[in-house]
Amino acid sequence: MSNPAPAKIKRLRKRTAASTRQRMWRDVREKGIEGVLFMAAALSVLVTLGIVFVLLFESAQFFRHVSLVEFLTERNWTPSYANPKFGIMPLVCGTLLTTGVALAVALPIGTVVAIYLSEFAPFTVREVLKPLLELLSAVPTVVYGYFAIGFVAPMLQQIIPDLPTFSVLSAGLVMGVMIIPYVSSLSEDAMRSVPMLLREGSYALGANKIRTALGVVFPSALSGIGAAYILGISRAVGETMIVAIAAGMQPKVTINPLEPAATLTAFIVQVSLGDAAHGSIEYQSIFAAGLMLFLMTLAFNILGYVLRRRYHQAY
């Protein structure tokens, strides 16, 4: 009789070899996927570093001709005049003013919409209303700009007769409408991620829906809501076409939203049209303005990160 052991050993070796090849192939695929993901992450970091390098390099050329003290303290911004002045404060003031008007519209309305969609809206209403809101973010910003001067500004002039056609108020209101979806969508996602046990515990203690939404769900989701607010602020600070079309393009230090003003992004667009010679001090000023815009956005994001960590630990 033949001994079956060698045959079994051969089959076992074949299975072991096949299993080893499968593990090796799986390891190769996993390493390849990890490599692709790492390259994608590294590419985003390299692009960011490249942007920062260009801003710093070109801004250094600008600051060879303009002192940093003048740049930060001068109250006039007239780079194309015969006697140019390069005080960034009028552009910073216009940027912060339009952002403040936009946030005064977007944050309360976006938060109320998010609470309604998360806690009160029926499923069918939420499934229809949320995509319709998100369509607002798909409208080109140049359309919002012409909507501001063609509809919002004339409507406001019926209430405020002395209001000019180009003003911070009309641009800020339309910009606030534009960023409502960013605030409402992310805030609603954060509130819906709050565990149902917290709501049920609140109901068991006798609280109604509105008290549960404001006293339990909203504080528990504050970390995600804060992220939505920071995204809205960053979106408002970096908005270009609405303020370039509707805000008036007049750099001045003002806190009156009824007046025209210029923002950092609007000035960059104005110079980038081609009127300034490449390499001139006026052309290099757009990189200094871009660096200031980058630092402002970075400051808002760092503030948001600190607040998220604080409230995340609290809850």
Rank of each mutant, 00 (worst) to 15 (best):
V112F: 15
D189A: 12
I159P: 07
L197F: 06
V28M: 13
G290Q: 09
T212D: 05
G110D: 02
V139N: 01
L97E: 05
Y311H: 04
T98W: 01
T73V: 12
Y144K: 00
S80Y: 12
L72H: 02
R211I: 08
R64I: 00
V125F: 15
S44Y: 07
A5N: 10
K85T: 14
F287L: 09
A5Q: 13
D189R: 11
Y116L: 02
E74D: 15
S223N: 08
M196P: 04
F71T: 09
A18S: 10
A60D: 11
Q284L: 15
A41P: 02
G290L: 12
S44W: 01
M89E: 06
G224D: 04
A289E: 02
I160W: 14
F53V: 08
F38G: 02
L56I: 14
R29A: 13
K209M: 06
L273D: 04
T297Y: 06
R235T: 03
M296F: 08
V36C: 11
R21Q: 11
H278L: 12
F218H: 03
N301A: 10
F53C: 09
F166K: 08
S184W: 07
Q61E: 14
F63L: 10
L46H: 06
K252V: 11
N301K: 07
S285R: 00
E119D: 05
S170Q: 14
G224L: 05
V28A: 13
Y116N: 01
L136H: 00
E188C: 15
R64M: 11
K130V: 14
M155T: 15
L214N: 03
T48L: 07
M241R: 01
Y283S: 14
S285I: 07
A221M: 05
F218D: 05
F86H: 03
L72V: 14
P6M: 09
M241I: 04
A314Q: 13
